[in-house]
Write a protein that binds this DNA or RNA. Structure first.
Lengths: 141, 141
DNA sequence: GTGTAAATGCGAATGATTCGCATTTGAGCG
DNA sequence: CGCTCAAATGCGAATCATTCGCATTTACAC
């Protein structure tokens, strides 16, 4: 059962298993969208789970630290967004018109990163790409 | 003379030529680093130019709007940074240790962006890439 | 069950950025 | 060159996401 799996993740991360941690992980693992701290609170309220906003922030911080969640800061959004970490490298394609955010599971970087290491002398640990454009729906309208 | 060139840019953008606009453009055009609004104010103060922080924000907003400057929001910095727009497509390589920011003037995207347009149906307008790693100096230390 | 550190709630603080409004300034025009 | 008016500026307050301090509660090891 998925829930047991989440509890294991929490405990393996050296964290206490609390109802808020579990429900935030469940929520994000079921969500197709990125959610802000505020969104998370709203969604939990819909499920009759009342949580303080500070607690949401502290909880997601811990879960990001332990790599159970990812924190995403997009160019056009001032608030951080969170997603369940499915451990699949990806980037985002963002509609400049309707702000739709679509994950992209392919990545054009690979070889280039090696070249860049040689040229720059940096030891490269990672990268972040965002693509901006107009989605199909907005092009029609 | 460079200054005349900047004044032209300001006027062509339909803006009034004010000492603050000119000095902010001059400052950024001479700077090798990205500067925050606060940094800009500090640097101008060093040159005995006293400017209100609100004015810095309003000025860079206008100059970004008119593409004389670029606004850059990096993952790890909460404040926006500004650079003079030299109209050369580039990305950034950031040292996770000392926060050095190095511009990279090559770009691995080109063909991939076309593929992505086909696959996604998006009309892609642009992209943003950040590379993270450890710079040569920090690797030694 | 007990003890203890970690987690939580609540309200206040922080810090970047924006806003409202009164004053000043740039630039076109006579 | 002086006049006029919109645009630009200064200043202080407001905003909004996020963090902090502290008192209280809870999870988990023994």
């Amino acid at each position: 059962m998925q829930k047991e799996n989440f509890i294991d993740k929490i405990l393996n991360a050296g964290l206490k298993n609390t109802k808020y941690r579990l429900s935030i992980i469940e929520l994000l693992s079921e969500s197709k969208e990125l959610l802000t701290a505020y969104n998370i609170r709203e969604e939990l309220l819909k499920k009759k789970i009342k949580i303080n906003l500070s607690t949401v922030y502290r909880t997601v911080d811990k879960l990001v630290e332990t790599k159970i969640l990812n924190r995403i800061n997009l160019e056009n959004e001032k608030n951080a967004m969170y997603e369940y970490n499915r451990e699949k490298h990806h980037h985002f394609l963002i509609c400049e018109n309707c702000n739709k955010i679509v994950p992209i599971y392919s990545c054009p970087i690979d070889k280039y990163e090696l070249e860049l290491e040689e040229k720059s002398g940096f030891q490269i640990k990672g990268h972040k790409i965002e693509f901006y454009g107009i989605c199909e729906d907005c092009q029609k309208a």
